[in-house]
Design a protein around this nucleic acid. Sequence first.
DNA 1: CTGTTAGCGCATTCAG
DNA 2: CTGAATGCGCTAACAG
Lengths: 341, 341
Amino acid sequence: MHQKKRLPSKKAKVTVRDVASRAGVGESTVSRIMRNKGPVAEETRARVMEAVQETGYVPNRIAGSLASLDSRLIGVIVPSLSNIVFPEVLQGVNAALKGTDYQPVISITDYDKDVEENTVRGLLSWKPAVILIAGFDHTRATTRMLEESGVRVVEMMDIDSTPIDIAVGMSHRGAGYETGRHLIQKGYQRFGYVGHDWKADRRARLRYEGLSDALREAGLGIMAHAIDDRPSSIGLGKELTAKLCSLPGQADVVIYSNDDMAVGGVFHCLEAGIKIPDEMAIFGFNGLDIGRALPLPLSTVRSNRFMIGKISIEKAFESDERGKEPVRIDTGFEIFEGATA
Amino acid sequence: MHQKKRLPSKKAKVTVRDVASRAGVGESTVSRIMRNKGPVAEETRARVMEAVQETGYVPNRIAGSLASLDSRLIGVIVPSLSNIVFPEVLQGVNAALKGTDYQPVISITDYDKDVEENTVRGLLSWKPAVILIAGFDHTRATTRMLEESGVRVVEMMDIDSTPIDIAVGMSHRGAGYETGRHLIQKGYQRFGYVGHDWKADRRARLRYEGLSDALREAGLGIMAHAIDDRPSSIGLGKELTAKLCSLPGQADVVIYSNDDMAVGGVFHCLEAGIKIPDEMAIFGFNGLDIGRALPLPLSTVRSNRFMIGKISIEKAFESDERGKEPVRIDTGFEIFEGATA
DNA sequence: CTGTTAGCGCATTCAG
DNA sequence: CTGAATGCGCTAACAG
């Protein structure tokens, strides 16, 4: 208790006080200059900046956030990063944040609602300015924490439920429905379905339901399924397509839970010598780069994940206060003809 | 100054003080309980937890970090998220952090060193416990800030230079070299190269150099190039392969800057009716899922991005102090035979 | 335009 | 095992 305690691995920190005394000004002047806020004489600014240079001062945002009671952290919660759509959303978030000094704090839930609950609790303790979270499928406690936090909350990807505050995304049910309508109109009759992660991926299920609705309305139905609980991948799509083809009764078109799965389907057909789309047509979802580059461009539904991330941030920042009514922003989708269906 | 100022959009916050008085204990007792640290009577703990429940208390980590002078934030800096390898690294980071209460704060540089410099400055102001950064290619100022910050710094992906503190990754030069040796041994003689992002992707260039070294040693060289400054994608790989094939002189094997590009090459050949590997062999880098699922499994070099992220965190946490000497951890790579070369 | 003062909410001594 | 006091580094009034 005689020696100043050595801070573990941190260099002797330089604080506003050091800079201020060195520049011969008050602390608040330094603070104002560092945040370019409030009036400052050009002369003093120069002097202070010099002191900042000399000392290598880096303001401590932790202290700043505590003092001003608002942190410049954005909590972002996604179920996974292995599905490319979420990194794409993050890119949109990042683009919208560029030039600001907000920092995204990212958490992964692995599609587990209890993990999500803990994650939300943890993020909330950082007093983020905004919370971005994928989907509507939360525990009661999660929803409650989010509601009561008072911060702006954007539920991303999906607009098929009533949001806590803001929802930015597209109607997956609608996309499924339109897919069905489109394929019926093209004359397909014998529908197959290949799906991934059946328990966890709520949006894939919504698309499936929309599709089923469209078919039912036309007096049709899905005659063959190959569904699995593993996460989506090209490999899984290939495997399940093989399984589907071995089932009795041949589909003339197969709808996939997403493009990765569909590309797997294309690969299977390539290997098995099945002619696309004549012997079997293939339809995906997402509009990924890989589908577009395929020798036969993949028929699919294009959504815009980058936009979802970007708009989520923009909407969240439009006002500090939540509105009376929840807001839904539809980023839309678009059937892409392609050549596989 | 009569009315308590309304905090913008935040609910009336409940603090340790509220919980403490409600439970009839001191603030430090609450603090100890919330962090389960230090001795507490089971009875008081129960009473306090009840108060926590009733009030919905969420500890403020910002205040906590300031008081204890150590934040539980991990700064992570990657050049992009559109290249799938970086999300994979993040997954590894996330896996290693699971169960702890550290949170990753993620920044993207878009392969711009000046952006990176600002990013590092910004992250450092959050006093992160650890900084993870991709690559060695920093500005002087960035390196200096990182050195002087005193925090543990892990430079990821690459081990071909001397790290500031710790490097976790593989030798890209070595991978290029081994690729060359492997293909020479298989009897290839006429080498083509297809590359992306030539200015920005230093690791791709290192692989190229290693490859060139191996060829030179064998008295060979690269006879045809198709190189571009755009970021890697399947589409670009396809486009550049078409370009390469239109050049005079036909390569018997083409090395690609990565698997995405190589898959584009495979697609081009499929369309153009070029037989792989007999008329033209294809070799990638990374060992992505998509290459493995191709009708002809892609010949490539497997690296382990997930491991890089995971080990980076583990190493960073081994000790609070930097060692005297920089540390390099080699996560290795492996030539994957595949069927395209 | 600038300096002084008083907290922000919590973790950490140190007595008790 | 527990409580009171101190201050982390900064920002936000406010007075000058």
